[in-house]
Simulated scan of single mutants.
Amino acid sequence: MSAIITAIGLDADDTLWQNEQFFAMTQDNFADLLRDHTDKGNLMERLLAAERRNLPHYGFGIKGFTLSMVETAIEVTDGNVPSDVIAQILDMGRDMLSHPIELLPQVEETLVSLSADFKLVLITKGDLLDQERKLAQSGLRDHFDGIEIVSDKTPPVYADIFERHGTGADQALMAGNSMASDVLPVLDAGGWAVHIPHALTWAYELATAPENRDRFTTLDKLGALPTYMEKLTGG
């Protein structure tokens, strides 16, 4: 039986445009700054721990990441981190906040195709100003019927979004690269979910794929989504 889907939610970072690669490059530079104090493996473990610890306070995004780098630098140097290192960390954060947008392949044509039959909603989490900047630079705003920049992606958040932008979560689908944020909570809300893996994914966003869930699938690229939707809805 064909599914009834009225709205499609799309993640932004590493689904529509590159994001994690800039975090990875910054982490390499961060490790180089502190190479005299610890090895990269240990530094990355402590940085991830700081990020997890700080999420309730700073939320998702580059600003919280930058503050977590500062905190980690203080920790691994036993409070003796040079001021010029702190300055360089802050510069790296500012560079990330001004980096030009790089769209992933087939994004615009995919949005054009999907928008002919479905209400499209951009659903992204992170710093409001930074996400708004990236969306403006992407040139994709006009393809969406709704824009939702949220502090976190949870089942109640998805239920509320798809109630306002569609006919409820049970008739909505979310597509994105994060198993933890774009798949599992949508399924728990009663919706459909498509995982589109990216080569680089933040450890916080990793999770085990659900088993025996008929409302879940994985596609190798965003450009495959229109064909999948045709099959799913009998279009």
Rank of each mutant, 00 (worst) to 15 (best):
A116V: 01
A50F: 07
Q106M: 01
I74W: 01
L184Q: 05
D95P: 00
W202I: 14
S113D: 12
L111Q: 04
L90T: 07
L97F: 06
I5Q: 09
A50P: 02
H99F: 09
A209R: 07
L67H: 11
A116L: 12
T227N: 08
K221A: 15
G168T: 11
T167M: 14
S181Q: 05
E211R: 09
P105M: 07
E102K: 15
A3R: 14
N80C: 12
F118S: 06
L219A: 11
R52C: 02
I5Y: 08
A199L: 13
F22Y: 11
M179P: 02
L114A: 10
S181P: 02
L200A: 04
K63V: 14
L135T: 02
D220N: 12
V76T: 04
V121G: 00
E148M: 11
S68N: 07
K221W: 04
A175K: 03
G235D: 09
G59L: 09
T154N: 05
D152F: 01
P155M: 06
L135E: 01
L103T: 11
Y58S: 03
I101M: 10
L97A: 12
T110N: 08
S181M: 05
T208W: 01
A199I: 13
S83K: 12
A180R: 14
A50K: 04
A73K: 09
F118N: 06
A224L: 15
F30A: 05
A199T: 15
G59D: 08
D91R: 10
D32T: 15
H143N: 10
A172V: 06
E211V: 12
